[in-house]
Design a protein around this nucleic acid. Structure first.
Lengths: 227, 227
DNA sequence: CACAAGCGAGAGCACTGCTCTTGCTTTCGG
DNA sequence: CCGAAAGCAAGAGCAGTGCTCTCGCTTGTG
């Protein structure tokens, strides 16, 4: 069925791709805020109303771009993983961290689209949650497969955290000790936060370039987890 | 001179405040994206063009709101500090962390305005950098005045990080060991990142409510610094 | 071959940020 | 005290936006 398709279907698919591609160009050039359906249509030489046959709304176009962004970021992480298949866990950890940062710096607006202020009244559709999980899963995979060194004893997690952690561990990383998972989540937050802070120019002004701070943070988190 | 002012000056000041106030209401209600000068003017019963006598552009209005947001966040931090003046450093650290989170949760759009995706082509004016520094300074103040426990030896910071750190320490926290400063910066990134991630719904789904994760992270960072 | 579905284009609506001009009011110097 | 100057509000208008609806044309299918 997918082998032979009508001309219409092929055209539709191609145009959909072209629209997304042009939208992506505009996003990269000037940010999500500035992305205009009319401008995309203009650039493609079609009427703006025709665009609505392919994306029901601006939000839907943005959602498609969000999924693409997550996918690219996930690809970058997986690629880093693949490139260091025989490396130590620490090396792989480093590689994924740097891959994420490099991608974000190369695609700041895309990064902002997924990790920045969400579109108001925008609820992430189901379709985004799978690609969104790829980076965390890549990090978790390293931790899971690595022999973890003993780490300094830590204060016991308060309240229901142990419960949440074991539930999450069961779902995403079976066999991982809750404390390691907690530290991995912390590391992920730090990765996302540090990239965001660097990209948005919040680094107090003293860390430019932020390469060394980033590298050090990567080591610190690996250390804390016991990689 | 400031004691006696003309009616015009008083009216101007009052109107400026009212505009900002109404803008703030709309921001809180539906986010920065939706903030419309015309809607603000409408709500205030004036012509939209008249607004431009008070704020030269939408961006300028937003900048005013950004400064207010930073100031409020800084106030919240300082207030937490003041309320725990006789407490242990650890208690004060905790207090500031929770104050920041509470403020962010109560004012998510304001938080997004300052720590989310920046307005495209928007360069933070000089006037924002002082209020922006207040939260980091509050955290740094605790670390500076506390007797730091010895912490496990860490890998030496790479590259120029030591240089950046000593320069920054000299400027913002004289006498603070570079390693402690690095960890404080890391903690700040984690604070900002965790709040952002929680607010934007990126927490994998397993940490709701995030109270415990947040509390635990606060303790972890304090522990790492040696508070 | 006819009919239905898919498609592109144009006009149009309600909205936006912003500018410019036109009068009115307040302020201030001579 | 009064006239010029500065400050002000309002309206019209421009260029742009997302989105809808209707109109013919093209393509696919019974």
């Amino acid at each position: 069925m997918p082998a032979i398709r009508t001309a219409r279907e092929r055209a539709r698919e191609e145009l959909t791709r072209e629209i997304k591609q042009e939208a992506r160009r505009q996003l990269a050039a000037s940010g999500a805020q500035q992305l205009s359906l009319r401008a995309v249509a203009r650039e493609l030489g079609m009427a703006s109303s025709a665009l609505y046959r392919y994306f029901a709304s601006r939000d839907e176009l943005l959602t498609a771009l969000i999924i693409d962004a997550y996918t690219e970021l996930g690809d970058a992480a997986d690629q880093a993983l693949a490139a260091t298949e025989d490396g130590t866990p620490r090396e792989r950890w480093r590689a994924v961290w740097h891959a994420a940062r490099d991608w974000a710096r190369a695609n700041p607006h895309e990064y902002g689209l997924v990790f920045g202020t969400p579109i108001p009244g925008y609820a992430a559709p189901q379709a985004t949650i799978e690609p969104a999980g790829r980076l965390p899963l890549a990090l978790l995979g390293i931790v899971r497969e690595a022999p973890l060194r003993a780490t300094p004893t830590a204060p016991a997690p308060p309240g229901d955290l142990p419960g949440q952690l074991t539930a999450l561990a069961a779902a995403m990383a079976p066999g991982l000790p809750p404390l390691a998972l907690a530290r991995a989540v912390s590391a992920w937050v730090q990765l996302i936060g540090l990239i965001g802070v660097e990209l948005h120019g919040h680094l107090v002004g003293g860390f430019e370039p932020a390469d060394d701070l980033f590298a050090w943070t990567a080591e610190q988190t690996a250390e804390a987890i016991g990689l």
